[in-house]
Design a protein around this nucleic acid. Structure first.
Lengths: 156, 156
DNA sequence: CTCCATGCAAACACTTTGCAATCCG
DNA sequence: CGGATTGCAAAGTGTTTGCATGGAG
C-alpha cells in the first residue's frame, strides 16, 4: 500500500509511464512476500486479475521493477528467473539456505559477511557492493530424520 | 595427466564406459584451469581435436564429469551454464568476485565462511554441505580509475 | 497528439530427447 | 555380442523481439 505510492513516483522519476500492468505485477510480488515466484508464476497470478495481459509485458516489467529497487531477481538454478520482494529497509540481498532433501528454501536475514568483505577488500582490493550467497545442505527436519534413520540401523 | 588416469577409474567404478569423447571433454576443461567455459565454448574446443563430436554428447558428458567430481557447474547469470575445474584437494566451491565494470572474474581461494556456517547451524539447525558465493562490486583497477576520475572533477 | 507501453506471434538461445548406428567391455 | 554411448536432427523451454494498436502525459 505504501510501496504502491512509491511506484508511481519512482516510475515518473525515471521517465517510465504509470500503467495498470506495472502496478499489477508489483501487487503480485508484494502479495507473495517470502516466496520466490518465477516469471511464469507471476504471469499466471497477474492474469487472474488481468486476463488480457501478455507474457512479454511481464518479462518487460520485472526488470523495470528490479531497476527501481522493488524486487530482486534470484536464481536457484532451476531453469528460470525468480523474484523476491525487496523489503523496505533492506540494504542488500539476504542469503538463502536450500535443503537438498525437501527443497525448502529458508531466508537468512543476518548478513554476517562484513568481516569477510573486509578481508576481501584487504587481500584483493575488490570493493564489494552486493553479494549472492546460497548454502546447500540439510534443514533441521531432514537432518534429524537422517540421524534417526542411521541410529535405527546401527549395529550392535 | 594424473587426473586422466582417475577418469577411467572413476567411470568404471560408476558403471560408465570409457570413451574418447569423455576424455576429450575433461582434457579441455583441464587445459583451461582458471576459466569458466560455457558448454558451447567447451563444444567448440572439443571439436578442434574431435570434429565429429555432437553437441548432445557435450551436454551429456558435462553432468557426468560433475557427478564424478572433476568439474563444478558455475552460474554467472549470462544465460548459460559454465564449468570450472574442481582442483585436487579442493573441498568445496570457492567464491567469485565479479567486477561490474570490466566483468573480470576473480577467484577467492580462502573460504572464510566457517564462522558464518557455524552461526547458521546454531540459529537454524541447517547443516551446510556446500555454498555458492558471488560478490559483486569493483575490482581494484576499476575502483582506482573511478577515484581518479572523481578527483579530476572535484570542485575548489 | 506524441511516444511509450502493450499484446500477439514469431524468433531466439540454450539444452534435452528420440532414434538408429556405433563402440566399449 | 549386448547394452551403453554417440551423432544427428527435431523438439522443448524460458525469454526476447518486431510490429501494429492502444493508452499515458
Amino acid at each position: 500500500m505504501k510501496q504502491k505510492k512509491d511506484l508511481s513516483q519512482l516510475l515518473r522519476e525515471k521517465g517510465y509511464k504509470i500503467t495498470a500492468q506495472r502496478k499489477a505485477v508489483l501487487d503480485v510480488v508484494e502479495a507473495h512476500d517470502g516466496e520466490h515466484l518465477s516469471s511464469q508464476e507471476i504471469y499466471d497470478l497477474v492474469r487472474k486479475k488481468f486476463p488480457e495481459v501478455g507474457v512479454a509485458t511481464i518479462y518487460r516489467t520485472l526488470p523495470v521493477l528490479e531497476e527501481l529497487g522493488f524486487i530482486y531477481a534470484v536464481d536457484f538454478e532451476d531453469g528460470c528467473t525468480r523474484y523476491e520482494l525487496h523489503r523496505t529497509g533492506q540494504t542488500h540481498r539476504h542469503h538463502h539456505l536450500l535443503c537438498e532433501r525437501c527443497k525448502k528454501i529458508t531466508e537468512v536475514e543476518d548478513d554476517l559477511l562484513e568481516e569477510i568483505e573486509d578481508k576481501i577488500y584487504g587481500n584483493y582490493g575488490f570493493k564489494i557492493k552486493d553479494h549472492r550467497v546460497k548454502f546447500y545442505g540439510l534443514c533441521k527436519e531432514c537432518d534429524n530424520k537422517d540421524n534417526k534413520d542411521n541410529n535405527d540401523g546401527f549395529d550392535t
